[in-house]
Amino acid sequence: MGKICKSCGNYYSGEYCDNCGYGKPTGVSESVKKYRKAARNKPLRMQTEEDKKLYAKWAKEEKQEHTEKRNDPKAKMHFLLVVIIAAAIVIGYALYKSGALFSNTREEVIEQYFSSISQGDFDKFVKCFPKEIKREYEDDRQASGLGKEEYMKALYQEFTDTYGEGYSIIVKFGNTTELSAEDYDMSAYKDQHGSAPKLSEVCEVVTTVEFRGAKGSHTSRLYIYVGRSGGYWRIFGMDEDMGSINADGTPNEGDVPPIEDGSDPER
């Protein structure tokens, strides 16, 4: 036998109203709540005694449902889980931005730079630089039409010609001098690349690099400038210590000084 819903006036034949959900044993449905909210907007002077009794009944049902949800162990566990996940996201983001999470060191980015050259690894190579330089290398490779491995081989073909296939690069670190991030001039970098990242730290790392291969070997002393941006160390530039110059204009390799102990912060 059909019934008329006391909540929305819909005619239904089941255990509960299929229009608003009134009479559902699992609690007050969302559609019921919406209907009730609209019904309660009826001005008080226009409410009949039947309306007032119905609104009081709704309030009692909703209060009971709220109490049941609040005391439900599953609901409490769900709420606690949401709080834990939200806290973990906030903490993880803060650690990521500070560089404490998934960061690198000054030495690691320099080692990655030289190992990516000897291995011909384009992806590792471009990650050593700020986004502006990284983008320029990626654009240049796309324009060349070369694959990543082919591009790296062409970029450093001179090393292969000089030292032979499968050459190795040995890196040793000397003194590290901290520079003021505020005083480190990025204007030339910005002019060249269009924009410049904000640096929290800048260092000059004295590095001795030895190339070894079947065709020969060579040792260079480099001053590599690394900066920390967004929690990661990147390479911004490097200068080579040429030592004295021979009559033919080439550096005297015997002048390349041995690497110093990096414990002394002063060069």
Rank of each mutant, 00 (worst) to 15 (best):
Y163R: 03
Q192E: 15
T160L: 06
V109P: 11
T208H: 09
E136C: 13
A188S: 14
G120M: 01
A143N: 10
T160S: 07
G213S: 11
I133N: 02
E204F: 05
T162E: 15
K127C: 10
A181M: 02
D185I: 05
S200E: 01
R212F: 10
P130N: 08
G194F: 02
T177Q: 14
T105L: 04
E136R: 13
P197Y: 01
S144Y: 00
T162N: 15
G166Q: 03
V171P: 07
V171R: 13
Y156R: 07
E210A: 06
C203T: 12
E111A: 14
H193L: 09
S195C: 10
A188E: 12
V126D: 00
L146I: 03
E108L: 07
G145V: 05
A143E: 11
G227P: 01
V205Q: 13
T207S: 06
R141Q: 06
T176C: 02
G120R: 00
H193C: 10
V205E: 06
T219H: 01
F122L: 04
E136P: 15
V206E: 09
V226S: 04
E165C: 11
L155S: 15
L222G: 05
Q157L: 12
D161C: 09
F159V: 07
D161T: 12
R141N: 04
L155R: 15
A143W: 04
Y137M: 11
Y225I: 06
S220C: 10
T105Q: 01
V109Q: 12
A188V: 13
K215H: 06
Y189H: 02
E201Y: 02
S187T: 11
I133C: 07
R135K: 13
L146N: 04
E165F: 06
